[in-house]
Design a protein around this nucleic acid. Structure first.
Lengths: 157, 157
DNA sequence: TCTAATTAGTTCGATGTCGCACTAAATTGC
DNA sequence: GCAATTTAGTGCGACATCGAACTAATTAGA
């Protein structure tokens, strides 16, 4: 694997190359998102706002930690940041006194919408090099990969 | 962070879902890699070892920071870790006294090879859901996306 | 029902990322 | 050839991630 070129794509090297490319894209797109977020917010904050909007707020911190595959301590820290900015509200969970519920504030909803609006232009530019057809082609493949990685992780623990 | 099942496959949401999926894959595959690395090493360490093997050692730190799209301070930190484990050696750059060159040690090459060997089984499993042809299909598309994000970032600064 | 085990969340400490400011060396411009 | 600018790398500080250990509440089981 000292050099990889020529010949059809095969061998472990191409899998490394794929995951490497994915890593760089993740990093660059996260930076892009964070450039569109209000001062003091980072990608995980947005991800949480987005999640609560889509699946409905009132989720518990642990529920969300599992949904995002992050340790609960990390989610705790992210939620503390959102709360400090008054984008979410933590209330006691009536069904379980150990637990909490996370609710979006009006400002939280607004920040999410404004961020999405701010990103619309970037995504439009992106479509010049990545057509909707391209997305349709690669997304199902990537989803298969993600599902496999996900299952694999479960069976490791 | 990552993780969110993407929204409906249409319009900007489709792009959003793609980047989201990429974020999840990055996170899960990094965790998998790190589970196969010797104690004390993390993904960036392996990435550097791999890079030096592929493109040849004797690269400068800045060259590699650019290749990986990380700040030079981050690369500095990563290289310090590799040096502490004696997996690379930093030597002065004869062509530029401000600069250094990074050389693999024998142990560095060995660690890389052993890690790849440890991953072989995982990649073989992966190839059951992601064929080499799949990789050949999606890799060029992802590379276009990465190149675009890269250029975009340059023009922002 | 009472004890043991489990679960939700936080605190704390170790470590990673990265921007800012700095030094030393190289390059540019005149 | 020399001052001004740029470039390579590091030190430091702010902040993020995350594992271990802890508290409080719930659930399991005999």
């Amino acid at each position: 694997m000292a050099h990889e070129q020529g010949g059809p794509p095969s061998g472990p090297g191409h899998y490394f190359g794929l995951l490497n490319e994915i890593g760089i894209i993740e990093q660059l797109s996260r930076t892009l998102l964070e450039a569109r977020l209000p001062e003091g917010l980072i990608a995980p904050h947005f991800t949480v706002l987005n999640h609560l909007t889509r699946v409905g707020d009132g989720r518990t911190p642990l529920e969300m930690a599992r949904a995002f595959q992050v340790p609960k301590t990390s989610m705790s820290h992210t939620l503390a940041g959102l709360e400090k900015h008054r984008l979410v509200e933590m209330r006691p969970n009536p069904a379980d006194k150990r637990s909490k519920q996370v609710w979006l504030t009006d400002e939280g909803r607004m920040v999410r919408e404004q961020t999405i609006a701010a990103l619309a232009g970037d995504l439009a530019d992106m479509s010049q090099v990545l057509s909707p057809q391209d997305v349709g082609t690669i997304l199902p493949v990537l989803t298969r990969l993600r599902v496999w990685l996900d299952k694999r992780r479960d069976s490791e623990d």
